[in-house]
Design a protein around this nucleic acid. Structure first.
Length: 358
DNA sequence: AAAATTTGACCGGG
DNA sequence: CCCGGTCAAATTTT
């Protein structure tokens, strides 16, 4: 399955709060990239370009360059990640938990360009933001987490359930998930999902740790954003067809809301083969942007049909300004991109880009 | 057959 | 000792 534009989007949109300089740089780069994207969009809509522009491919390259640089800037400002897995249970290898997992505070905006049978836009419209200094359990209390309430727990990552626990004074059990790439890449991200007491239609999702793998969708990229800025500028670059998979299975994960069935992908393809090129974040591959040239999936409408702002942007954040929203289809115009690798391609189905202000 | 889930046991913090 | 988080064998699913 196609790899996602995770590196670029996630890091480009993630502005470490503690590093204003880096976020500012990333912000400028993203603004620049957006500018190019807007020009490209106009081009795609039939507008003629000024002579100064080098055409769609040049614009595409420019956008990619901006993303990469923003990515690098963000990384430079970010904290170094520990990749060691926690081995609480193994006395021999157990180490004091000196590694502090980063607290996530962010504004999340869902954008969906291709809903298919599942209304992903609807499922993620009600995500609230709050920071918790402590959780219920021992691990949660020790490691700050970010907490969401959502109609589903989809976040674009691939999770594996590893436990379920009845919680005292709770009507619903708590489900424990860890990143499916924990073994492959030592990704330490985990999450807990529990049905809300107040509103059973909502799920309280608590995230712990960072994804050190890059196996995430654009939605995940947006959610991985550290940004908690209310003035985030949001725009969507829609690379057209939702999925590039020959098998027709999108990289996105869905959640039907049933216990135990969340995070199961519709495709039977195992993650290891589906995302064979999923590389850890620290792989040194600065230009993490890969293009997809694959056919659209049948469940997805034509790019033109999905590019209307109403379809693409499902903004639940009151801070979002519709005027700032933009959308761009990047369908086939990246076919010759130098970033394209035969077996490393990404699904640019949808990408959320946040411009950070600090 | 392989991968994912289930579930009872184990472990550590409070 | 209770509670919550994780492990891992057993079971189920694909």
């Amino acid at each position: 399955m196609a790899l996602i534009a995770t590196g670029a989007t996630a890091t480009a949109t993630a502005a470490p709060v503690a590093s204003p300089a880096a976020s500012s740089t990333a912000s400028e780069l993203m603004a620049q990239g957006r500018e190019s994207a807007a020009v490209l969009e106009a081009l795609l809509h039939g507008a003629s370009l000024p002579p100064a522009h080098g055409g769609a491919h040049a614009l595409a390259a420019e956008i990619l360059r901006c993303c990469d640089r923003a990515l690098a800037a963000s990384r430079a400002g970010g904290d170094a990640e520990s990749s060691s897995a926690d081995t609480k249970r193994k006395p021999a290898t157990a180490q004091p938990s000196t590694r502090r997992r980063r607290r996530y505070i962010y504004m999340y905006v869902s954008s969906r360009s291709c809903d298919g049978a599942r209304d992903r836009a609807a499922t993620q419209q009600e995500i609230f933001c709050r920071a918790t200094a402590s959780g219920g359990g021992a691990a949660a209390a020790a490691e700050p987490a970010r907490v969401e309430k959502a109609r589903t727990s989809e976040d674009g990552f691939l999770w594996r359930k590893y436990g379920q626990k009845e919680i005292k004074n709770s009507k619903h059990p708590r489900l424990y998930y860890r990143c499916s790439y924990k073994d492959d890449h030592g990704c330490t991200a985990t999450k807990q999902v529990q049905q809300s007491e107040e509103d059973p239609s909502l799920y309280v999702i608590t995230y712990f740790g960072d994804h050190t793998c890059s196996c995430q969708t654009a939605a995940a990229a947006a959610m991985d954003d550290d940004d908690d800025d209310e003035n985030s500028q949001h725009f969507v670059i829609n690379f057209g067809p939702a999925t590039a998979s020959r098998s027709g299975s999108p990289p996105l994960l869905y959640d039907d809301g049933d216990d135990g069935d969340v995070w199961r992908e519709t495709a039977a393809t195992p993650p290891s083969s589906r995302q064979s090129r999923c590389s850890p974040e620290g792989d040194g591959e600065e230009s993490g942007v890969k293009m997809s040239k694959e056919e659209p999936v049948d469940s997805c409408p034509a790019p033109s049909a999905v590019s209307s702002p109403a379809d693409v942007v499902s903004c639940s954040s009151p801070a979002m300004e519709p005027d700032l929203l933009g959308c761009l289809n990047w369908d086939d115009d990246f076919g010759d991109s130098s970033f394209v690798d035969a077996d490393e391609f990404m699904n640019f189905d949808e990408i959320d880009l946040f411009q950070i202000y600090s």
